[in-house]
């Protein structure tokens, strides 16, 4: 674990085969040059959420991380789906002895001490497999500290696989990431929970703003869907606050101005399912006043369960499958190399 970290820090290639070492190094340099413009040695943090269980968060996290590493980037995949962690299985890693819980309990000082290597050179993993759900409560107040430590790592990308629901820890990490990805199934239950998740993120952002106490109380009242202040949609809160305090209204607008989660529709079977992504973007614009980006979709594909049984990401186990092809395109879109499907 520490050795793996030292290897990365010193720029030594992670590949066990020495013959590929130089090639991989070249790819790494070129991809960093051609990739997103960002500070050298400051990793870009992606969070993958969705509000509901079984919508493909771990599938997208594992395959996305694997593709990025295969393209020569240095990647860390963290499992914060505590209580239901299985990202390690998707990545083909046995449950490690140390995980995120050991960091949360203070057994180790730095997140790098619980990182393990995977079979994909350039891809590291922090597991949550041995950690109970209660660890999440311990970590809520240490979110900023963990993000700070992640920013210190000499990596290109950090991918955080979040759990279902709207636990404060899940919301904190989604909001703290540079980019948030929402995995949604084209089914009523999944779409409904995704809205609930976005709603919680939206109000958390507003609650964290530095506005007068009275405005915070208005926001708190609006969180209740049966609110007494007569809000039909969260987007209406700006007009309500505008009447009370125009300066505070501007602060609130700024707080969500850069909030553009990217959505991915998973288990797509037809054009109708694909169009659900655009419909969700439209509804979110009207309801929350937020512009979501429809980054792409992933087909319903038998290679998924076959890959899970073989405990490898589908992009590694079935590189020629429709799913692998979609994941490659999705990666291009997320990296800004291809346009979003919407807008």
């Amino acid at each position: 674990m520490d050795k793996a970290w030292e290897e990365i820090c010193s720029g030594v290639n992670l590949s066990s085969g020495s013959s590929n070492a130089q090639n991989n190094q070249d790819v790494r340099v070129s991809s960093r040059v051609s990739g997103l413009a960002r500070e050298e040695s400051v990793p870009y943090i992606w969070s993958v959420g969705g509000g509901k269980g079984g919508v493909g968060k771990s599938l997208i996290s594992a395959n996305f991380a694997w593709i990025l590493a295969r393209r020569g980037r240095r990647v860390l995949a963290i499992d914060l789906d505590l209580g239901g962690a299985n990202l390690h299985t998707c990545l083909g890693v046995n449950p490690p002895k140390l995980g995120i819980g050991d960091w949360a309990l203070g057994k180790v000082d730095h997140i790098r001490q619980v990182m393990v290597t995977t079979k994909q050179p350039g891809l590291l993993h922090v597991s949550g497999s041995q950690d109970p759900l209660e660890i999440m409560n311990l970590m809520v107040d240490r979110c900023d500290e963990l993000v700070h430590q992640l920013r210190e790592l000499d990596l290109d990308d950090v991918i955080i696989d979040l759990g279902a629901g709207t636990h404060p820890l899940t919301l904190n990490f989604f909001n703290a990431a540079d980019s948030g990805i929402l995995s949604i199934l084209p089914e009523p239950t999944s779409v409904e929970n995704a809205y609930r998740f976005i709603r919680a993120l939206f109000y958390q952002k507003l609650m964290k703003t530095d506005v007068p106490k009275g405005i915070h109380e208005v926001i708190q009242a609006a969180v209740d869907t049966k609110n007494v202040i007569g809000l039909r949609a969260p987007a209406d809160i700006f007009a309500v606050v505008e009447r009370l305090d125009p300066v505070a209204a501007e602060i609130l607008k700024k707080a969500v101005a850069d909030f553009h989660p990217k959505i991915v529709i998973n288990q797509v079977r037809s054009q109708v399912d694909i169009d659900v992504g655009k419909a969700i973007c439209s509804v979110c614009r009207r309801y929350f006043g937020l512009q979501l980006h429809y980054a792409g979709y992933v087909d319903y594909d038998n290679s998924v369960w076959r890959a899970i049984r073989s405990r490898r990401p589908a992009v590694a186990e079935f590189p020629r499958s429709a799913l692998a092809s979609r994941m490659e395109r999705l990666t291009n879109t997320l990296l800004g190399e291809e346009k979003d499907l919407y807008p």
Binding site: P186, E187, P188, V191, E192, Y195, R232, A233, D275, V276, K278, A279, I280, S282, V283, R286, Y287
Partner: peptide, 26 residues
């Protein structure tokens, strides 16, 4: 056509956040 489908009764995207009156207005 896409917008009409999005706010129609059978749409999975809008039923959870907009009531019938709001959808009618939209």
């Amino acid at each position: 056509n896409r917008a009409k489908n999005t706010y129609s009764d059978h749409s999975v995207a809008s039923y959870a956040v907009f009531d019938d009156d709001s959808k009618e207005d939209i």
